[in-house]
Amino acid sequence: MSQSQIYFGAAAMILSAVGMWLMLPRGNAPGRWIGVLCGLASLVLYAGLGMDMQSAGVEWLYGILAVTVVVSAAAAVTFRNPVYCALWFALSLLGTAGLFMVQGAQFLGIATVVVYAGAILVTFLFVLMLAQPEGHAYYDRVSWEGMLSATAGAVLVGVLTMAVTVSLNPPIEPQVVSAIEKFIPPGADAPRLTAQSIQKAHLAKIDDGKFELVLDLKPYATLPETEEAALKQHLVTNVPRLSDHKATAEQLKLIINRTPIQLNPSDNDRKANILTDQHVARLGGELFGSHLVAIEVGGTLLLIALVGAIAIVAHDRPKKPASDAPHLATGSTTKGTSRHV
């Protein structure tokens, strides 16, 4: 992770904290639009931290969907009227379903739309209309500890983002790569290694002026062991960080991994397995093959939840509306707060 990415991430973190705080309901305090601007700016910075996907069509679709998801999620959290919150949340769900589709999880995309947007959200809206016909309660226009919660959320996102960026980008030192590209082995007339054949080049200073360079080469890169000494000599003179310290070839420890372990499946593997044409069939086979017990437990859970929900709602109603009412936060405008239904 380079220095500029750290600055990017820190700026995005601060801007998103300020933006979310300003956007959250804070009574009639001004500054909501400034918050929207801060939030959009932090979104641009976060997008700058994302990686280039190198396939134009999917890239644009993915970008539009991701921006839709995040913007409508922020709107769902910050709108004053809970009905609008629910509607923005529905848009966010549709965007998520689109992201699932782009990633090849077609069944989950449809299931999200049907289960979440179709069932859960409609029930939420139903309860909302039933329980809050006025829609403009004062508690929707204030929030608990807006600044603290926005800071907590932004720090969490910032730390997660940085951790992801660090762990998914193997460190590649540009100085080392450009030096290796110029390396011509003795007896040869052209450079042997190109930048594409280097997977990781991590130069670290260890104690008493010694350096350690970990170089991961891709499987097709060729570097005979007889040329390692020459490469070391070449690096010591050509990498500015080493030549500035007047490091000698003895002080540089070169660790070359010629065939880095290929953890990632190839595109052909994916086409045969998770991106197969028979997506639903394979998914069902997996679900009812390897996860049969879990499916049964999930079904039981649904049944228990249904029984529990009915038991909660149909349980004995409060007998005396006034005296049974809980102690309310003082300062409430609501006077007859206990309504016997």
């Binding site: 998103s16 979310m20 959250l24 309901p25 998801v69 995040v70 999620a73 922020a74 769902a76 959290v77 910050t78 966010s92 998520t96 508690y139 929707d140 204030v142 929030s143 608990w144 500890e145 807006g146 603290l148 919660s149 926005a150 907590a152 959320g153 932004a154 969490l156 996102v157 997660l160």
Partner: peptide, 13 residues
């Protein structure tokens, strides 16, 4: 998404 949801869960009433 997780962070935005967290902020909302803590702060909305």
């Amino acid at each position: 998404l997780f962070g935005i949801g967290l902020i909302g869960f803590i702060s909305r009433r």
